Computed example of a mutant assay.
Amino acid sequence: MNKSPERILFPKDLIYWEDFVWLVVHLRIPFRHRSTGIDCITGGLMGSKLSSGMHFWPIVLRDEHWKFINDHLESLPYLEYPISSKVAKEFIDQFVMLKDSPDWVPSLLTHANLLFDTEKRNVAFESEKNELKKLMSSGDVFLVDSQGMKCENLSLGVFLSNREAIRLLERKGLLDRALMVGCDWTAFTCGSEVNTPEKTAGKYHGLSHELLKIGVAEYRCRLTLSALQALTTHSEASGSGQDLKETVARSRSVDKNDWSGSLREFNPDMTDKSHGVAQTSSSLSESNSKDIESSDTARGDDEGSELKYCSDDHSGDKPDSTVPTPKWIGTKTVLEMLQVSRATVYSYMNSTSRSYDPTFPTPHKVHSENKWNESDIVD
């Protein structure tokens, strides 16, 4: 036999009025110290260039903003509070490089947000308490003592009946939310907002000094150029990167917002994602490319966005012009060429799989996506 809502939430007949008020407050402003995923995003920040420099302002995210975040969340670093500075920066950098990414960035949950939540709950408690007093005075709600006698004031030893509590929750539009919490609501209202191991800086958590200085659009260009530099270095190491190097160098002489136009000369497949084709420095290091300096170490340097190539005893040597320019292809193209499934390709690269093939080409991470040298797949 199914239990009634009042028995699900309030097994006891009487609920202390203060406990009930705190339940209402926490249903409206729940604890966020165990937030994950999209719940770790609190809004957005947009930069504006003023005469005094670049300034960032909070923006309220609309439905289409949240949809964009939700559609790409799986391809971004996993968020779990507390969010370390490293994960926060990786998340922001990869968000900036998404295909069709906007010129705003998400603001991430910080310790300051939890403290602000606590302040809001204290204010909300007083507001809910005063509302309960008004309902008592008007006769819209009845509170009783432990003997069931009607009380006129809120004080120690004053209770609501479980039916009255259910009626009030329904009136406030909180009944369904309360039923989801169930009879554990007493623990729910006593959630522990523990101090984070790393006190996050506030609303700019995850935003590098360079991004704050130059804005989202320019920062995206610098990340792209840095990623292309590393890709060029990797190609040069295999003796086939001169054409890419020259293409990137030419791209520096044009408007940085139109860098993709120059890259089409090198490989049309690389520019099918507009400004989101290149990987960030963190993903490049995972694909065995040489590490590139972080944007923070280059802040304030007017040459920070330029590509610098290492010179050594062989810097004057040019690769054989007969060496073909590598063409990077995605997983879908590889599957079509080999006429196999995605699972089969992954089994070729999995050393624990029966289908493991140590000679199968290793992909490179390009903006969180696997890319192969087409000639390697043909071979």
Rank of each mutant, 00 (worst) to 15 (best):
M1G: 10
M1T: 12
N2C: 02
S4F: 08
P5T: 04
I8A: 15
I15R: 14
E18N: 10
F20L: 15
L23P: 15
L27D: 15
P30R: 11
F31H: 11
H33N: 14
I38G: 05
C40Y: 14
M46G: 01
M46S: 05
M54C: 14
I59G: 09
E64Y: 09
H65D: 15
I69L: 07
H72G: 02
L73S: 10
E74G: 11
S75G: 10
Y81H: 12
I83F: 03
E90G: 00
P102F: 03
V105T: 06
S107E: 08
T110I: 03
T110C: 11
N113F: 07
L115C: 12
F116H: 14
F125R: 09
F125C: 00
S127T: 12
E131C: 05
K134E: 07
K134R: 08
M136A: 14
S137T: 12
G139T: 10
D140G: 06
L143M: 12
L143T: 11
V144E: 01
G148D: 11
K150A: 06
C151M: 08
S155T: 08
S155N: 05
L156T: 02
V158L: 01
F159V: 01
S161N: 04
I166Y: 08
L168C: 04
E170P: 01
R171H: 15
K172W: 14
L175P: 10
R177D: 13
A178H: 13
M180A: 06
V181E: 15
V181D: 15
W185V: 13
W185T: 11
W185Q: 12
A187M: 04
F188G: 08
C190I: 07
S192R: 15
A201E: 08
S208W: 01
H209R: 02
E210V: 10
E218N: 04
L223D: 06
Q229K: 02
L231D: 08
H234Y: 07
D243Y: 01
D243P: 00
E246K: 13
T247G: 11
A249Q: 09
K256M: 02
N257R: 07
S260P: 00
G261N: 06
G261D: 00
S262P: 08
T271D: 09
Q279A: 15
S285L: 09
E286M: 05
S289Q: 06
K290N: 13
I292D: 13
D296H: 03
K318W: 02
D320G: 12
D320F: 06
T322G: 10
V323W: 11
P324M: 05
K332A: 13
T333C: 02
M337G: 09
L338G: 08
L338K: 14
V340R: 13
S341D: 14
A343D: 07
S347R: 15
S351C: 05
S355W: 05
F360I: 04
T362N: 06
N370Y: 15
N370G: 01
N373P: 00
E374Q: 13
